[in-house]
Amino acid sequence: MYRRIPKRMLMVAALFTILISLFVWHGSLSPDPESNIYPGERELIRDHHGYIGEKVEVGGRVISESPLTIEVKYGGETMELFVTGTDAKVREGDRLTVFGTLQEDNIVTASKVVVQPFLNIVYMYLVSIVAALWVLSRILTQWRWNHRDKALEPRERPGNLRESISRFFAGGEHG
């Protein structure tokens, strides 16, 4: 038992190192249209002149319906892109993702656009928060922290939420 903990710690440290390396590795990847990985928000904000004439896949908030304009954001910077070649119905505040060819003057000629209405985006965030709270409450009522093992263990029977929260770290025999 006491030997197992340091071994686990070493494994966790190693896994964290690999995970951070993956973050950096993925961040250093370039678009690869052959594998259907197209320049996106990051590439266009950094160097959109470098991608003129190429297929891009980029999304942003609609800030004008006519001319159809989206605001593309990355790393605290923004740029405006004009989207042509689509008669998609959009309103300001919707999210529009366009797959198309980048032209001069920040214009993208769309092959395809995907529109996510503003209210649907609000809906998505709301139900996602509900889902997160649901899962959290299930963890709190069905599991508890065991101080001796320094680990979560399943409860024999689910508690009610308020009691479970107050006794989650109590580690009692019948918590």
Binding site: V24, W25, G27, Y74, G75, G76
Partner: peptide, 16 residues
């Protein structure tokens, strides 16, 4: 924001 982390010069993405 991964873009802000990248401003330090280290490429970074949460996509993995």
């Amino acid at each position: 924001d991964p873009g802000l982390i990248e401003r330090t010069g280290i490429p970074f993405s949460y996509s993995p």
